[in-house]
Amino acid sequence: MEKILVGLKRVVDYNVRVRVKSDGSDVETDGVKMSINPFDEIALEEALRIKERGEASEVIVISVGTVDAQQQLRTGLAMGADRAILVESNSPVDPLGLARTFKSIIDRDDIDLVILGKQAIDDDNSQTAQMLSAIWGRPQATFASKFDVAGNKATVTREVDAGLEVIEIDLPAVVSTDLRMNEPRYVKLPDIMKARKKPLELIAISDLGIDQGPEIKSLMFEPPLERERGVMVDDVAGLVAALKEKGLA
């Protein structure tokens, strides 16, 4: 296998407690810390390990978004990716448009394997990998926790509701990563310096001629209904009494 493409999405950092704007138009992202979607970091780590085992020769990171996403791509380059592509779009791109964008890069750059995070922690859609494999006409191995390449095939362990499912797929394919696939490496300072010299290509999404498909509009955002704070009991006897009162024990 030659080339692995990895998607990196710029999202509100995992540790930020997100709030809805008072006018309900969106969530508050001004001045909030932004990071690489954690599942995408796992995807990149997996790609780098495949390359380090000599099973691939190039790892390419791609992001679709505003110029600010260059920051996350630079982090990806510092982790060890060989080059980066930013497909610039100032308006949000739905998963179908994203999948079609990735597909056009797959065709242009002859990609053999795509690894994406299983979901982005902002919109929680969990769709792009499945959509990309559909329009590519290739296998999808979603929610993967283990990925072993053997020639033009791979064996993948998937985290499913029933436990761990093992499937065999032909390559090329699309893999989406679950949490326990690996632990991403930390970026070292010299790598950040080196990453500045690695190529980062900018493409306007309009230049790719992508039909983004019928749009799903977000009409409004609201905070979730909060659960009311309950009672504290002093001891186990108090807990048993409270459970019995509710008919739960």
């Binding site: 499945q130 929610f143 799903i216």
Partner: peptide, 23 residues
Amino acid sequence: STTFGKDLMPRVAALLGVNQISD
């Protein structure tokens, strides 16, 4: 929206050329 449906439905949507609503 189980691992079965989350795996399957976006593939259906993309083949039909539409976006999908999750959850």
